[in-house]
């Protein structure tokens, strides 16, 4: 079996948001929609203050609540663990959005452009506009199209950049890694074996598949 996961090494992330930009560029998401983003979290009290950069997005959960509640079966989980949305089935009820504890789902009602309606669309916005995304749920796909295309060419997701999500490819500090958790030799498997990691809101039982590394293994 194959189980794709994302590993974010919080010790390495510098909060540059290059992954955010790469995702927007790769997926042509509308203004205000960020399938991948990095939170800047300041915690503690002076003088013991910490700053953590936290990449977030769809966790492609083992037991995705978005899929359970979806009345139209638009949300599906592939055999490789990636959670996808069939935009032609989705009715845009946003039930998945309120069921997701990771705030990873979005819905836009209208066609938007970065500089507003008066300024009009930029050339690339007009060229890449997808009407199928209006009024329906959307979220990170782990760049499933890149993965599928890469696999068809015999490439390995997480190892060959052509078959790897755009956010991971763009990461300047290699904080983001992607790969198959069921492959013991994959980079993600080795990273998780050699380091201590946690996942977001694990107590909710969704089985999120973004792992956050925070220290070496003891």
């Amino acid at each position: 079996m194959t189980k794709y996961v994302l590993v974010a090494d919080l010790r390495r992330c510098v909060g540059c948001q290059t992954c955010t930009a790469a995702c927007k560029n790769s997926n042509a998401t509308a203004p205000g929609i960020q399938w991948r983003k990095v939170l800047d979290v300041e915690t503690g009290t002076y003088p013991d203050v910490r700053r953590t950069f936290l990449p977030v997005g769809c966790m492609h959960c083992d037991d995705p609540p978005c899929m359970t509640v979806c009345p139209s079966t638009a949300t599906k989980k592939r055999d490789d663990g990636i959670v996808i949305i069939d935009y032609d089935l989705c009715i845009g009820c946003a039930y998945c959005a309120v069921a997701c504890p990771y705030q990873a789902r979005f819905k836009i009602k209208d066609r938007l452009s970065a500089y507003g309606a008066d300024a009009g669309e930029m050339t690339h916005e007009a060229a890449r506009f997808d009407p199928a995304l209006i009024g329906v749920a959307q979220k990170c796909t782990f760049c499933a199209d890149r993965i599928d295309e890469g696999l068809a060419q015999g490439l390995v997701p997480g190892k060959d950049w052509q078959a790897t999500p755009a956010c991971v490819n763009s990461c300047i500090s290699s904080a983001l890694q992607f790969g198959d958790l069921d492959d013991k030799d994959s980079a993600v498997s080795r990273l998780l074996a050699e380091n201590q990691s946690s996942r977001m809101h694990e107590e909710l039982g969704t089985g999120p598949n973004i792992y956050y590394i925070w220290d070496d293994a003891p």
Partner: peptide
């Protein structure tokens, strides 16, 4: 009243010679 789950820092990571911090849920 429908505030969402928000995010938490699962563990504050080690930086340099420092020690990791406890999870934070603001």
């Amino acid at each position: 009243a429908a505030y969402n789950q928000g995010f938490l820092v699962p563990r504050v990571p080690v930086r340099g010679q420092g020690k990791p911090g406890a999870p934070v849920k603001p």
